[in-house]
Amino acid sequence: MLTQQERLAEMKRQMALQAECIAKAVLQRLNPLAHQRSIAYLMQCSQQIQEQEKHLAALEEERRRIRQECIDQQQRLELTEQHRLDCLKEYTELEQIRQSNEADRDWIARSVWKERLHAQPAVKMPRLENKA
């Protein structure tokens, strides 16, 4: 886009320079045919400048549209990332609850097993006497 703006500025500079030269030439000698050609040339330059200005305006509009699209995409990306983080947080919380519940079940099961183990009376095994 910068080169297009530079091109437009150069076109305007060249047209101004040509207009100045034509004005000097008319003052030096009056030649209706040359003057008519010069006017036609300046009109052609003016049309080219207008076309270049339209082209620049279109480029600027395209640039604005692309910028807005980029902003929209960035916002969608940020929303997606936030959703991912929320899901990860929720998963972590649920996993901690699940592990805590599992640890509680294990502890309860071990407590019951220890109670049963300590609650059972010690059974003496009869001694077998060796009669030989």
Rank of each mutant, 00 (worst) to 15 (best):
M1V: 08
L2M: 05
L2F: 03
L2C: 02
Q5M: 00
E6G: 00
R7Q: 00
E10C: 00
E10L: 04
R13T: 01
Q14P: 01
M15I: 00
M15S: 02
A16K: 01
Q18P: 01
Q18R: 09
A19V: 00
E20D: 09
C21V: 10
I22Q: 12
A23N: 14
A23L: 08
A23C: 04
V26M: 06
R29C: 04
R29T: 12
R29I: 07
L30Q: 14
L30W: 14
L30C: 09
N31D: 15
N31Q: 14
A34V: 10
A34T: 07
A34C: 06
H35D: 15
Q36W: 12
Q36V: 10
R37G: 04
R37E: 12
S38E: 15
I39M: 08
I39K: 06
A40W: 05
A40V: 08
Y41L: 15
Y41H: 15
M43Y: 05
M43L: 13
C45P: 01
C45M: 12
S46P: 00
S46K: 13
Q47E: 10
I49E: 06
I49A: 09
I49H: 05
Q50C: 09
E51H: 11
E51V: 09
K54H: 13
H55A: 11
H55E: 12
H55F: 12
L56R: 03
L56E: 04
L56S: 03
A57E: 07
A58S: 07
E61K: 07
E61G: 01
E61F: 01
E62N: 07
R64T: 05
R64S: 07
R65K: 13
I66F: 08
R67I: 11
R67H: 15
R67K: 14
Q68I: 08
C70F: 13
C70T: 15
D72E: 14
Q74C: 12
Q74W: 09
Q75S: 09
L77Y: 05
E78W: 04
E81T: 13
E81G: 02
Q82M: 06
H83S: 13
H83M: 10
L85C: 04
D86N: 09
C87K: 10
E90D: 06
Y91Q: 13
Y91D: 12
T92N: 09
E93K: 08
L94A: 09
L94F: 03
I97L: 13
R98G: 02
Q99D: 15
Q99P: 08
S100V: 02
S100P: 03
S100E: 14
N101R: 13
N101F: 03
A103T: 06
A103Y: 03
R105Q: 12
A109R: 11
S111Q: 14
V112N: 07
V112F: 03
V112E: 11
V112L: 10
W113H: 11
W113D: 11
W113M: 10
K114G: 02
E115H: 03
R116N: 11
L117H: 08
H118N: 04
Q120D: 04
Q120G: 01
Q120L: 08
P121G: 03
A122L: 07
V123F: 02
M125A: 00
M125Y: 00
P126V: 01
L128D: 00
E129D: 00
E129I: 01
N130M: 03
N130Y: 04
N130S: 02
K131S: 04
K131V: 12
K131Q: 05
